[in-house]
Computed example of a mutant assay.
Amino acid sequence: MRNISDIIEGYLKAIIEEEQDGVIEIKRSEVAEKFQCVPSQINYVINTRFTAERGYAVESKRGGGGYIRIFRVRANTRKDLIEHILAGLQNGVSHTMAFDIVYRLLEEEVITDRESKLILAAVDRATIRIPLPERDELRARVLHAMLVTLIYEEF
């Protein structure tokens, strides 16, 4: 059974896909009213499901005429996408960031479901059992090596 966060995420993604430019503008209170939840639930969904690692940019304006604008960011090629992700791996990668990166690669059909499971197993906390921040640095190096391999793989 899907939870309310999954339902809200699906709704917002469906609206984004309908838009030609991949941009939507919403009012948090209106979406909260539609799903009969508190506005902070909408914030949670946007902050956790619409991240840069997952291929989104978010901007907001507070106040009475406020809005939340969500942009779908798409790379021109698979190589561009991977290079963009590689540029963001400089300061280490948390477990959540790694999951989001793999989710995006899977969603954009750069990797298969099987490959996503292999990558996630390699960068999991249970696999890399060393203290922070070294764990995040090692996770970034492992993920970097895997992504560089994907760039040079023939698509």
Rank of each mutant, 00 (worst) to 15 (best):
E33R: 12
E33S: 12
F35E: 05
F35S: 05
V38H: 14
V38Q: 11
S40T: 13
S40R: 15
S40D: 12
I42P: 02
N43I: 06
N43H: 09
V45C: 05
R49D: 08
F50G: 03
F50L: 07
F50C: 02
T51L: 03
A52V: 13
R54D: 04
R54Q: 13
R54W: 02
Y56W: 11
Y56L: 01
A57G: 11
A57V: 09
V58D: 08
K61D: 02
R62K: 15
G63W: 08
G64K: 07
G65Q: 08
G65E: 01
I70R: 00
V73L: 15
R74Y: 05
A75L: 05
A75M: 08
A75K: 09
R78A: 11
K79T: 15
D80Q: 09
D80P: 01
I85V: 12
I85P: 00
L86Y: 09
A87E: 14
G88V: 07
G88A: 07
L89P: 00
L89H: 06
Q90P: 05
V93C: 02
S94N: 05
T96G: 08
M97G: 13
D100I: 01
D100P: 00
I101M: 07
Y103F: 10
R104F: 08
R104Q: 11
L105V: 09
L106G: 06
E108F: 06
E108H: 03
I111V: 12
I111W: 00
D113T: 14
R114L: 10
R114E: 13
S116G: 15
L118K: 13
L120T: 01
A121Y: 09
V123I: 14
V123F: 06
D124R: 10
A126K: 14
A126Q: 12
I128E: 00
I128K: 03
R129F: 11
I130K: 00
P133D: 04
